[in-house]
Design a protein around this nucleic acid. Structure first.
Lengths: 121, 121
DNA sequence: TATTGACTTAGACTAGACTCTAAATGCTAT
DNA sequence: ATAGCATTTAGAGTCTAGTCTAAGTCAATA
């Protein structure tokens, strides 16, 4: 699959794809005889995972660490699990923070709708 | 209230407080005869709101827009309401995105725990 | 009175994650 | 075979949201 097709499939730019490859999140992607990338199913699987985790705000640094552990083989399984568990906790906290903010936002909007706004921001 | 007390109350740095003031999110904060900031209750209320919205990822640009509308007076009420409603939608989407990612993360962790991990990242 | 520590400013710097540029090469359609 | 679009690289530039630095002022204390 060409880079163009990948960008369309996952709705991301080719710059981002090459950037992820450069920092080692994916690939190195196989290239054909004239040097053009040909993404494998495995590459696509990774990109999907990475994209999903990035959209949740997990940093490239953490993802890189996970990928590196994966590359080291089975002996890193437990460490990988712990890394994911830590990220799970962080993510749960973030969702909670955002849900709290959402509630406040909704409350404020309700004040606007019912014209019960006080004098404060 | 001094800047120090505010940083402690809201657990943020004085740099951030002065930065928010510089870009017009709060204040200008009243200063005493020797030029030192004395935050009012109103300032504190704003800081709390701003901090909460920032923690949910709402950009400084958007918050600045909201503050500017507020400063313009009652005639901007409807516009402010719409702005908040837009942010509410964005926030709900973000929370959904993150919840989806969290589910995938949990599933993956479950694979680790039950040793049912496949050969992929 | 001298020092210490909090506060002030303007402005430079940083981190993270892209995003863009330039220059070269490749592919495809006319 | 040539126009025109896609792809490649290395490396520079951008954006957001702070964070840090330097140089200075001020109040309280030893």
């Amino acid at each position: 699959m060409t880079i163009k097709e990948v960008t369309e499939k996952f709705n991301m730019t080719n710059d981002t794809l090459r950037y992820y490859e450069k920092v080692g999140l994916i690939g190195p992607v196989k290239k054909n005889s004239s040097g053009i990338r040909d993404y494998s199913d495995n590459d696509l699987r990774r990109i999907e995972f990475i994209k999903c985790m990035r959209s949740a705000g997990i940093s490239i640094e953490v993802l890189k660490k996970y990928v590196d552990l994966y590359e080291k083989g089975d002996s890193t399984k437990l460490e990988r699990q712990h890394l994911l568990e830590e990220e799970q906790e962080k993510l749960e906290e973030k969702i909670k923070t955002m849900t709290d903010a959402l509630d406040k936002l909704k409350y404020k909007i309700e004040l606007y709708k019912t014209d019960k706004l006080d004098k404060y921001l």
